[in-house]
Amino acid sequence: MTFRIGPRTSQIIAYITLLVMTAITVIVLFFIIFYILKNGIGQLTLEFLTDRTRDMGREGGILPSILGTLFITIFAILIATPLGVGSAVYLVEYTKGGFIRRIISFGADCLAGVPSIIFGLFGFIFFVITMNLGWSILSGGLTLAVMILPTIIRTSEEAIKAVPYTYREISYSLGGGKLDTIVRVVLPSALPGILTGVILGIGRAVGETAAVIFTAGSSLGLPTSIFSSTRTLAVHFYILAREGISMPKAYGTAAVLIIIILAINFIAYRLMHRFIARYY
């Protein structure tokens, strides 16, 4: 006779196992955030945030990296947003299935799966070497723009699709053309959703290392133009931690990164909720 567990018992065992495993996942996440903040928050003085980096990062602050991250991210967003939103508008408003739609979607999906080191290799050979832009904010920003493009396309596409069809009918029936309808009705209605995508793109850009280290370089000087080489926060943190230059400074930089990422996710989440509350 074989021993069998009854359905009730197996249900209880399964429930507890799933609960524990999910709890572990959540605890690990909170632990990572808590650990970084606990060890780094003490470093976050005004001086740390506004001072130049000295002695390879052993002394001073992280101002050059904050500025570098800011400029590269802004640059990437300025390029990727019009391309991403434009692609999404085309996908939703101008294609009705068919080959073009499939090929554009395929491109966006594949691009989303490309690992950041490949973007690093590409940005290095294409922007830095072939186009002779050197290690610069420009090269780094362009590389990141390509990297976050699929995120913006996908979220904008979902947001535009969610705008009720009747809004378009109304606009057409009032004599609006296709472009009027898109610019005055569809895009304003989809704005929170689109912004969510842009903000998630900012998050990816801020946290990225492999794709920027070979395109923007790792100079610690204050950036003076878009052709300056710069070291983003994530790259600076990586170098501090890996080369063991200064653990306290590494924790401080990581805390800044984590706080930015948390803020970005929070804003994206709130925007998404507003959007969902409006249309679903």
Partner: peptide, 19 residues
């Protein structure tokens, strides 16, 4: 917009080609 919509697939092609 059609031109813009090809930015993703164009980027992918450029990446493939250069790598």
């Amino acid at each position: 917009l059609l031109f813009i919509a090809f930015s993703a697939i164009l980027s992918l092609s450029l990446i493939t080609f250069f790598i």
